[in-house]
Amino acid sequence: MGKVDLNFMPKVPVFDANAALGRKHDRRVNVDSVEGTIAEMDRTGVSKALVYAPHGAAYDSTEGNQILIDTIADNKRLIPQFCANPTFDNINDFSKSLKTKNVKTIRIFPPLHNYPFTEWVVGEWLDWAESEGIAIWIPVNYETNWHPSIDIDPTQLHDTLKNRPNLNVVIAEIKYADFSWVMPLIRSLPNISVEISRWVIIDGIQRLLNAVGDQRILFGSRFPDSPMSPQIYNLHHNDLSDSTLKSICSKNTERLTGVKI
């Protein structure tokens, strides 16, 4: 007979590094409000969540980011992350809005926004982010009803980031099928971290730890498309030291966002 904790809760503080907040245009999401998000965080033992606006991904970063700020209002457990489109947004205006709202991380979507992740497209933005200490989240892909799921080109990631050792980049939503390129990429570039909401490959956590140690792995959930707790449960059953568990569950995200739990 199997022994199992059916009422599992995390034993360390948890900072979700990959959540969305707000409505989507192409379907009704299960949770689109602060109240619903906080309720799920309370149910699953998540202290803080880094959230971006789906509208900022799908249509307009400026409007999406404003919606996000309005939605969060004064809630201290939801940390805003701004969406950016380096091919359209004005870098000076964007930088100002980031400072005004005290936002420390951004999220970009090269395949969704239809540009290659190359020096001649994003170079100026990477220079700016590197100099300002802004960490950049890049999801492997992002699908909408009008845009099919197209993965980012790993060669572009590698070649564009290899000369920027001081820029912090988080590759988000890596999948089990990405194993073949993700592992060599993170081994070769020490400034890349990974967010693990979709990383369900067998022994996935140990494989990442063996490759890059515990400072470059970030717990994330992909909420509200996915629940918050399954990956937390997995992390708690990987025989990790308290220090490693804390790093992955919150400390690494604290470091990159500048926000303490």
């Binding site: 904790d5 009422n7 149910r43 067998i202 996935g204 937390i232 449960y233 997995n234």
Partner: peptide, 21 residues
């Protein structure tokens, strides 16, 4: 779905679901 997926990720969907024990 072993050995593609990890047991821990998969069983957690059930264990942490908001349903009765």
């Amino acid at each position: 779905d072993m050995p593609i997926m990890d047991y821990r990720n998969q069983i957690s969907k059930v264990i942490t679901a908001d349903i009765s024990n």
